[in-house]
Design a protein around this nucleic acid. Structure first.
Lengths: 113, 113
DNA sequence: GGTAGCTACTTTGCATCGCAAGGTAGCCTA
DNA sequence: TAGGCTACCTTGCGATGCAAAGTAGCTACC
């Protein structure tokens, strides 16, 4: 398993909750949206199991809707529980990101000396 | 396992490499340094296995040195391989952090509307 | 000399999540 | 009818943080 996979642990969930929060969407499109944001190569093999888990945990709800082309799409939206979870994620992300940035910055400075 | 533990996967390694890069240090003190940077409650149960793994992978080297009080300390410094690994980590961290910030920012904006 | 308290290191099994890769199936067009 | 595309699903694996118990050295005090 690569470093990137490790770094995405826990993070992917927050990103997906956030994207769904912006606008209800379906699994296939989530991959596209993540790519647009700069998170490339997040495969369906990551997204669908995660979506089903979030649904099981009642953070999101899905409804099947007809598609213009191809099969039906499962549109997801956040539940109240999901919105809370997203808030908690943002807090935890900040609590991790901030010290990490400090640590890496100091390291960078050292290298520049 | 908590969200914080998940978010630390992969991240802890980079932080520890960076702190050691700044100045050689020993296991026990790493916990203190992490705390100073704002990463509290990272226990020895996380740090020591990680140090031994990094040593096994030849990213760091350790030397036992006398301590003013208490038992000897195992001081670690980065190897050339470790410095490369740290650089790679910083790249990967940026490649993850940037899109995540974008995604979370959009989500925040939505909430503020 | 022995003991308590502190420093310092070690170990092991568990829980969790990203993901590869194969699968099913609906819809449109030629 | 079949091919190609869209869309969803499943399963087992690999890797890492960590709790919690452990060992042991050193100092200071009685």
């Amino acid at each position: 398993m690569s470093l990137r996979s490790q770094l995405l642990k826990g993070v992917l969930e927050g990103c997906i909750l956030s994207i769904i929060d912006q606008q209800p969407t379906y699994g296939y499109e989530l991959s596209i949206r993540l790519q647009e944001f700069g998170l490339s190569d997040v495969s369906e093999g990551s997204i669908y199991p995660l979506l089903l888990r979030l649904q099981k945990e009642k953070l999101i709800e899905g409804t099947m809707q007809k598609s213009e082309l191809g099969p039906k799409r499962k549109y997801y939206h956040l539940t109240a529980h999901g919105k809370e979870s997203l808030k908690e994620f943002m807090i935890q992300w900040e609590n991790i990101k901030r010290p990490v940035e400090k640590i890496l910055q100091k390291g960078g400075e050292t290298n520049e000396l």
